[in-house]
Amino acid sequence: MSLTETSLFEAVRNQYLYKLKSRLGLFVAMAGTQVLALLFSMGGVASYGRGSQYLHISVKYYSSDIVIWFTILWIFFIAAQITARDEQNIDFTFVSNRLSGNLSNAAFLVTAALIGGITAILSGFLLRVIIYFKGGIYLSSQNFIAAPDVVFTGMAVTILYLLLFGALGYFCGVLARLSPVFIVLLIGLFFFGGWFVPRSILPAQVIVFFRVESSLALLTLKVMITMVLLYACSFILSNRLEVR
C-alpha cells in the first residue's frame, strides 16, 4: 500500500477544525461566565453617593470590566485545561505529532480570544440596554453609545489581553504536565509571590509593562512577542512528552 504524504499545515488544519467542533462546549461555558459577570455588573462597577437631608445623589459607573476579567479567567483556565494528557491522547488517536497538536491548540486559543473579546465588549452594550430598561435612573447619555473607534480599540485591547492570558495559561498547563512540582510552585507564586518578591521588582513591572502602554500598536507588539515566546517555550518543553 502506498504511503500518503501529509504536510504540517494540513495536519494542523485538520486538528484545529476537529478541536473547534469538539470544544464548542467551552464557548457555552464562556457565555455562561459572561452572563454571570453581567449579573455582577448590574449594580455598577463603581459608585459614590452624596446626600443631604433632602437630596441624595448616587453616581454609578456601568461597564463591562467584570465581564472582561471573567473572560480572561475563562481563557486562562481553558488554555491550561487543553494541555491535559487526555487532550493530547485525543490528538494522537488520529494523525498528529507534538508540534501539530500544539499549533492547533494555539490556533484554537486565538479563536477563543477573538470570540471572547468581541462578545465581552458587546456585552457592555447589552448591560447599558438592560440598565436603560430597568429605569429609575438617569443615564448620562454621552457614553450610551460609544464612538466606533473607542469600541474597536476596546475590543482590540481585550483581545490582546485574552491572547496574552491564553498563552500564559497554556504555558502554566504545560509546566504542570511536566511535573506536579510546578503546580505547587505556580499556586504558591500566585498567592504568596508578593511576600518573597519585592513589589517593585518582578510582578509589578510585568503588569506595568503592559498596562501603562498607551499606544495600541506598541501594546500589540509587546503582547505578540510575549505570546510567541510563551508558546515557543511551551512547544519546546512539551515536544518530548510521551503520550497514551
Binding site: 500518503t4 504524504e5 504540517l8 495536519a11 485525543i90 494522537f92 497514551r244
Partner: peptide, 23 residues
C-alpha cells in the same frame, strides 16, 4: 517519534483510544 509521515500512515487501536467526550 514526532513523525507526521508515520502518524499519517499508521493507526494504533487499543482499548484506551481517546475521543472527545462531546462528540
Amino acid at each position: 517519534f514526532n513523525s507526521l509521515k508515520v502518524s499519517a500512515n499508521m493507526i494504533f487501536v487499543d482499548e484506551h483510544m481517546k475521543f472527545p467526550s462531546s462528540l
